[in-house]
Design a protein around this nucleic acid. Sequence first.
DNA 1: GTGAAAGCGCTAACAG
DNA 2: CTGTTAGCGCTTTCAC
Lengths: 334, 334
Amino acid sequence: MANGQKATIRDVAKRAGVAVSTASRALSHGSASKATREKVFRAAGELNFVPNPAARQLMSGRSNIVAIAIPEHTDFIFRDMFVAGILGELSRAFSERRMLPFLALTELQDTESLERLLRDSSADGVVVLSFHYSRQLAQVFHDFDKPTVFIGRPFPRMRYPYVDVDNEGAAYCAAELLVERGRRNIGIIAGPDDMMAPKQRTMGCVNGLADQGMKPLAVISGEYTAEHGFEACERILEQYPEVDGVFAQSDQIAVGVLQALAKHGRQVPNDVSVIGFDDFPVATMTNPKLTTFAQPLHDMAQVIAEMLCWRLEHGEWNTVAQVLPASLIKRDSV
Amino acid sequence: MANGQKATIRDVAKRAGVAVSTASRALSHGSASKATREKVFRAAGELNFVPNPAARQLMSGRSNIVAIAIPEHTDFIFRDMFVAGILGELSRAFSERRMLPFLALTELQDTESLERLLRDSSADGVVVLSFHYSRQLAQVFHDFDKPTVFIGRPFPRMRYPYVDVDNEGAAYCAAELLVERGRRNIGIIAGPDDMMAPKQRTMGCVNGLADQGMKPLAVISGEYTAEHGFEACERILEQYPEVDGVFAQSDQIAVGVLQALAKHGRQVPNDVSVIGFDDFPVATMTNPKLTTFAQPLHDMAQVIAEMLCWRLEHGEWNTVAQVLPASLIKRDSV
DNA sequence: GTGAAAGCGCTAACAG
DNA sequence: CTGTTAGCGCTTTCAC
């Protein structure tokens, strides 16, 4: 390509027969006479001129880089479709706004690496996706001192802007749905108890049941895996054979639940209703197909990008929290 | 944090009572008298000095950014665990080497966006993960004109360094394994026929069978999904009821195969042997657990980072292609 | 409208 | 070993 070196704005100016400053103006805000502008643009085109981002950044103080920080355990990141999905959407949302998404994956405890990564990145802003918040982690973002948005509500003491799914609302709706279907003996199989979302989902479901004068048979926390779903469901079947409804807090969990129910000869949805959460591909592969809640990954990413870009543009937040509804996907398991 | 502005090297120099260049030297290569070095480091520490990457980049011509380009369909990226896995590993591998992984996800056909993203990123190098290569795509990387490594072998006419899994070898081994087990009527359920890896896997398996004087009953291509596995397997069962072995080119496909076999009353592994590919979590959740090939995601990422960093350091490649073995994970389906 | 000159923060070449 | 000077590529005063 380039015959040796890359063209600089000096080359463009020379070729167009104008001063460097004129070329710069013409290219940036177009503040130049029409004739000059044309000359400059032609020259730039011919030389295949691409402005050097480092120089720009040096002047403007902005890098247009946004760090997407995911301080979580490796396997978690790899296995969790939520992470993959939101990552893809975020990447697109920021790219569309001419921001460059930079990926900062670090082990949960390794705050040092995270700190270094953020510093080296010269990011203008940060999006944080983590389910385990700690003081040290909070400190890192505080020290980095750049506009930061959290995905999922951070623990109350961390006052950061965030975008979240309405976990509580969806779970409330799940409870209503089960009760409407005539279910009275409902078990909740929850996600990890050191994360925020499972707490919200459990609370929403418990509240939903309470408003109908009911209580869950049991709430069992564990990983977002089929194994957990299977084991928890078996425990419930043993202790509460009258169980006729299960709120599984992820589709993976629901898969395990369905397996356990099948193993014990319970028909879904005839004997027992099951509701999942996430609407990942697996939800259509189960038998029966899973009724579940779809997370608005796309919208979340858009809102996050919007928030952060506004903040970078205007120097202040226009929203400080935004909660998006999950949508009920009715299939055959309720 | 910072009381207003960020500290520059001038501030550090002033505070340490030395010239700017001295401070720079002390901080970079440490070429300064011990006393000076100490003074400078103390001052830097007190001022919380962080060198401005833009300025550095402007001098060195290097950004330390590596673009990870994934021009693929959105859903594919989200649903494919291979992509998520390798992405995570790559991110870590580069971060460890103080390179900044920048994510360039674009729709397959949208080469314009990809071009813009790459340009804006000022990346020093590129890692490309795509399964659908086109002339336009090739052109983009050619024009960008930065050291580039492909994940997976690009189509023959594109002469780029690449790192790949030994798909052919693994598939050959799969064939051997099935034959050893006494299987004689083997179906191959392949991945998409417009990708390279499925071709390699099919070829490997066919060769493996040929070397035992056998031929596959059928080769059926389709998506890397359980649906495809299910349908393809049903078709094989119908046409070739004598089928006693299936090489499924992904674990997802294998899931569908197992479902189909179960539906038709075939016992695995008594009546039919099934081998998968990927060793994703689902492989341990099937019944029976799946025998499959694990892809060396971690090693691939390390090798890629190594290759690219060497190239950036030394101006030339030290390897131009590297093929890593997949490892057989024996479980219960063969 | 345009050109000359200064400077963003840093490093490298050159004297001392 | 250290200070002075120049310059990376660009934008932005400030005169003209």
